[in-house]
Amino acid sequence: MTTHYLVLSALLFAIGGVGVLVRRNAIVVFMCVELMLNACNLAFVTFARQNGNLDGQLIAFFVMIVAAAEVVIGLAIIVTIFRTRRSASVDDVSLLKY
């Protein structure tokens, strides 16, 4: 019965992963990362339900908090980059290499 949830979770995760790889806009990449995180959350909650304990739910909360913190820092960086470069493309930010 939980299979459907897990399939949905896997689909969401795959969509997110493909998005991270193919999109150039930093905001969209970010959204895709969020999608992947939430796919994981769905899986966690599903397992919690299946196992009948709260461990998975607990970790889902952790992930949400980490995701929130990440969004704050990530968006701040993206906004700063956008201000200086007038672009939100991740491919333009490639100075940190070699």
Binding site: L21, V22, V29, V90, V93, Y98
Partner: peptide
């Protein structure tokens, strides 16, 4: 070190 291209998406890949 040439592997470090600086493109985030290649790292992700």
């Amino acid at each position: 070190r040439r592997v470090q291209t600086g493109f985030v998406r290649s790292y992700a890949l």
